[in-house]
Design a protein around this nucleic acid. Sequence first.
DNA 1: GCAATAGTGTCTGTGAGACACTATTTG
DNA 2: CAAATAGTGTCTCACAGACACTATTGC
Lengths: 244, 244
Amino acid sequence: MKVPGVSESDFLRTYDARAFDRPNFSVDTVVFTVADEQLQVLLVKRDQHPFRGYFSLVGGFVDLEVDQDLQAAALRRLTDKTGVVAPYLEQVQTVGNQQRDPRCWSVTTVYFSLLAKDRVKPVTGTGTSAVEWVNVSEIGSNRSLAFDHGQLVSMAVERLRNKVLYTALPAHLLPEQFSLTQLQRIYELILNRALEAKAFRRRILSAEILVECGSKQQARGRPTQMYRLADPRYTYVFSRPLDL
Amino acid sequence: MKVPGVSESDFLRTYDARAFDRPNFSVDTVVFTVADEQLQVLLVKRDQHPFRGYFSLVGGFVDLEVDQDLQAAALRRLTDKTGVVAPYLEQVQTVGNQQRDPRCWSVTTVYFSLLAKDRVKPVTGTGTSAVEWVNVSEIGSNRSLAFDHGQLVSMAVERLRNKVLYTALPAHLLPEQFSLTQLQRIYELILNRALEAKAFRRRILSAEILVECGSKQQARGRPTQMYRLADPRYTYVFSRPLDL
DNA sequence: GCAATAGTGTCTGTGAGACACTATTTG
DNA sequence: CAAATAGTGTCTCACAGACACTATTGC
């Protein structure tokens, strides 16, 4: 393995990136939304082996010509399937081992994204394959996913549940304008437990990350103050997490 | 791109994992320790192009025959260089883009590890290349590292700084037996600010993650109560983070 | 005694949780 | 008026920070 007097330029000219066995590498994104009082993820039906006919996460291999970096690769797949540029995309974890893909040693970097359902164009994916929102609660019981994607979803859900304890991330799951009650419902959905309204409002409002934008008449009852995120790109971190 | 009536077994038999251009993939670990009142990382001198003669993180490509999964790959490299099985290893982030390696589009998954310096055997690495502890504070100024490893170190330091606010991770940087004062000094080193002794002791002791193990005479002054981690594999999470 | 280090008593402040209460709408 | 939904007043509690204090050693 000695490289005696070779210059760096000579070395690079003669280097063959395909000379060594390398793992397969892909990028997958768990896209969350909320609808029908359910946390849902976007899945795509595979039309090729392996796992033909199974649903899988939105993702695929990196295109070395097109993708500038990992996040861009994830974003490209996501935009292909949803028609929108995801407003929130965060890397979760990278999983790689011999067993997860029957073809070979394979690695995937998992992202998660938050999307308001009303922002997604009627799911006119580019491919022929079906794209579908699936309730998180059904995955693993009614449905098993391709590869280890069921586990990847669990990891992303765990991360989301954890982040919700000290950030206002769930705002990205709502339409641009929303009420504090709506936001609280999303928190409750994700955490699967009730929160105290007073404490919730105090917490969110004192963070000063929302701006008021008019009030809206409800079907019945007192009208609601509506808000939107002051800066959607900014992730506020609360000084104390919610109690577990 | 249609695969008409091919069976899954036929498909797998004829699948060539090397048929598509894929990014290079490697695993790198930022190994932290503390010595001379400094946070240090373990670096290896490269004896091959590219970046021959520069220092880089402990890492390398996955061995598809030997490594069961990503963490095992990281651990193997680490054990090669330190002679110990790292007691704490955590995935930080995965970075991939066109620019970071002059050879090709390349991806690395970065881990960080915490090691008490006295546990590392006198750094008899298997390779011929030099292995060295370097102060984190010197990286980027006095020393620039191979590839983007300087940035990778920064990411790991940021993660460590953040985790220290709500865990007792720094205990892994100390010998098996340590005093609360020693532990506090490590926290202060990482956070780069003084902590209140009373609050610190109350916090750590009330977590009940330490067990007393005798007292030790100091050079001068009152003898110290020594402790060790009750369960080194368990990471306690404090209900509130330290103030920023 | 003094210097040096370990360790405590106790007050303050902040922000989460609890829960009874008020406010504003429709019918 | 009642029902429904939005929003508040205010108490308690846990725990981090501040800081003056005590404890135990060597010299």
